[in-house]
């Protein structure tokens, strides 16, 4: 959030209130206020794709507002007509007639001279997992197989602690370089990769998923991502080459244990 910009926007809107402008000016002011808010008020800036969508919605809403009452319709029409015909607005009209073509020309210029951006693709962050994966020749059913050591949490806390400990070892041996000490996806090497490593502290990552999903992602890594998650720029290794099944389940236990989160429970049909 960029507080200064927000305050400036609010100040302009408040100032406008005292000027008692027509409905058209109000609509335009609101449009630009939202535009400025999205582009400069929020830090980091909102991606263009989202800003475009926001502005489309705002446009529709403003149109709806202006046309929702006969009086406002009339007022808007009259002020538009006045703007184009009245002597009073001659200078602003000329300014607009000149400024808009200049703006268009500038747009053409900047779009023709900026370096094209590398091909971007909307990645699917949480692609759907397959129903089963093959792990070293064994089939793991991602929908129905639960973490075989999860039940120890209730049954045998000592054994559970051992598994978590083993998971801790696995994590520091393999994962800490990228996912970091705090599991916030900010490890030593994190800055060198795009997409950046997953942040397990974020409640929208592992806390939203069942453990089978994590098993799939850990075992198959970046190379095992489905097509919809292309480009396969993910540097996540396919850990099935290095880890045993038990180690993977253990490190999953550790991930949840360290972040104080719980895996999404399987829902049972009523």
């Amino acid at each position: 959030m960029n507080v200064l910009v927000i305050l400036a926007i609010i100040a302009v809107m408040v100032a406008l209130r005292f000027l008692k402008p027509t409905i058209v000016v109000w609509a335009i002011a609101w449009w630009f206020a939202v535009f400025a808010m999205a582009n400069y008020g929020i830090d980091p800036p909102v991606p263009t794709s989202v800003t475009n969508m926001f502005m489309a919605i705002v446009t529709i809403a403003l149109l709806a507002y202006v046309t929702a009452a006969e009086g406002r319709m009339r007022e808007a029409g009259e002020s538009l007509v006045a703007f184009f015909t009245s002597k009073k607005y001659f200078i602003p009209l000329v300014i607009m007639l000149v400024a808009v073509p200049l703006l268009v020309a500038f747009n053409v210029y900047s779009s023709m001279t900026t370096q094209p951006a590398p091909p971007a693709a909307g990645r699917t962050i949480h692609p759907p997992p397959p129903a089963t994966v093959s792990f070293k020749g064994r089939t793991v059913d991602l929908n129905n197989d639960v973490n075989p050591y999860r039940h120890l949490e209730d049954d045998d806390s000592e054994a559970f602690a051992q598994h978590v400990d083993n998971g801790r070892r696995v994590y520091y041996e393999n994962c800490v370089y990228c996912h970091g000490d705090n599991m916030a996806g900010d490890g030593h090497f994190a800055h060198g990769f795009n997409p950046i490593p997953a942040n397990f502290q974020d409640p929208t990552t592992i806390a939203m998923l069942q453990e089978g999903y994590l098993f799939w992602r850990i075992a198959k890594g970046g190379p095992g991502l489905p097509v919809e998650s292309t480009p396969w720029a993910s540097a996540m290794p396919a850990w099935e080459l290095f880890l045993s099944e038990e180690e993977i389940w253990d490190v999953i236990l550790f991930l949840y244990d360290f972040t104080d989160q719980r895996p999404r429970a399987r829902e049972v049909h009523e």
């Binding site: 991606p47 794709s49 699917t124």
Partner: peptide
């Protein structure tokens, strides 16, 4: 939730 963004934006 996950936005379409260019590399710089991302």
């Amino acid at each position: 939730h996950s936005l379409v963004a260019s590399v710089e934006e991302a």
